[in-house]
Design a protein around this nucleic acid. Structure first.
Lengths: 217, 217
DNA sequence: GATATTATTTGAACACGTTCAAAAAGCGTG
DNA sequence: CACGCTTTTTGAACGTGTTCAAATAATATC
């Protein structure tokens, strides 16, 4: 069932795959090449990973874990919503960094609703929860209006997904423009949160939250 | 070069493909099946369309044209930003309606940056311009603060892309939830536009516009 | 230790999107 | 009509992700 040898082989295939993804890109890394490089047969690779996409799901999981580690460190001693947001989001992109050049392929296999890798879907529930938890950590210890607090982490995660999408398209060196976007958007979001209790703004925000709840699931 | 016969064959292949996409879905419609159904050889289909994705690009173009027709009609006699927004966006989804069940595949081939079908890319510049123009038509004759007006159509188009993404994931009957989202979000956006001149909000909006400009291209 | 059961491995085979060299058809020019 | 040139058509071939029945190895049961 769950022998040590088996787990070891699975890990070997996965690590070989991720290494090849990084060095050759996603499209150019064939399942046959992964199998050969890992010293197993093609069928064996498929015994452990039902599809090439499933390898991407592992990549997603690993990157979230990596983001979490980086974010936790970066958040220590960082105060204020704006800076804490920056820390979390920059951490995410740092973790994804090595995979930028096949971001397109990543999106192609990740976004289709029926895909196992779809970040909104069932299979990635855990990873998504972990990612949202990072934003819970971000707002912990910051001043956020109570009516906004429960929904905020998920909204921030959603915005983060948007940033990742932007990042995938970003062809500037070192994805400089995405970094600019983050540094510009973080204070804006912090400001928006802070004015959200004002009488002119609050009804709008509350209506938006209600809409989100109404439309969900 | 551009013989009538040739154009006719091309149109035949395209229409056969779109019809099969609608009836069987994208993934299950193979290039071989399209060719057979259209009565041409596989190589001929590829002579006219360099890839399966290119057929999707045509679909995108057609759907934008269709949206434009529907929106223009729906906008006649419709006043107020909120209602005009609803008209335009509902028109878009009406046009896309028959293709909902392969929205996932659509996204998979549309979003990768290197894809010919990518709505942000070069190949779809024209179709994108047409789509943005619809939102120009939407705000024509509505009250929009001058500092916001030039950028607004593109922002609305971007939001519309978000709605389409939501729609692709929407598994409720007749995509009811997406319709709710539109009807809920349109008045919110209209409200946001109207309060954007207020002293507390305006600096935030201006800063966001500046960020958009800074980060673009 | 022998045998049955389960887990793992294998590589051939399938269908697909795509490419390509060669054939066929269409066209203009003398 | 005959000749060259371009446009169009063809189907075999390639490499891909994926499936699967059969073979092998590992483990459990007696």
């Amino acid at each position: 069932m769950d022998h040590a040898k088996s787990a070891q082989t699975k890990a070997l295939v996965l690590e070989t795959a991720l290494a090849m993804f990084r060095s050759k890109g996603f499209a150019k890394t064939t399942m046959r090449a992964i199998a050969t490089e890992a010293g197993v047969s093609l069928g064996s690779a498929y015994y452990y990973f039902a599809s090439k996409d499933e390898l991407v799901l592992e990549l997603y999981r690993e990157s979230v874990a990596e983001q979490r580690v980086r974010a936790t460190t970066a958040l220590v001693g960082t105060t204020g919503l704006s800076d804490r947001l920056k820390a979390a989001v920059h951490s995410g992109l740092d973790a994804l960094g090595p995979y930028h050049h096949f971001g397109g392929a990543f999106i192609a296999s990740a976004l289709p609703p029926q895909s196992a890798v779809n970040p909104f879907g069932e299979a990635s529930r855990q990873a998504r929860g972990d990612a949202v938890a990072i934003f819970e950590e971000v707002i912990d210890g910051t001043k956020v209006p109570a009516f906004l607090r429960p929904q905020l982490p998920e909204l921030l995660w959603l915005a983060y997904m948007g940033v990742v999408l932007f990042w995938v398209y970003d062809r500037s060196g070192d994805q400089r423009r995405t970094r600019m976007l983050i540094d510009g958007a973080a204070p804006l979001i912090a400001k928006l949160v802070s004015i959200s209790r004002l009488p002119v703004v609050r009804p709008l925000v509350e209506e938006a939250l209600a809409l989100k709840a109404r439309v969900q699931a």
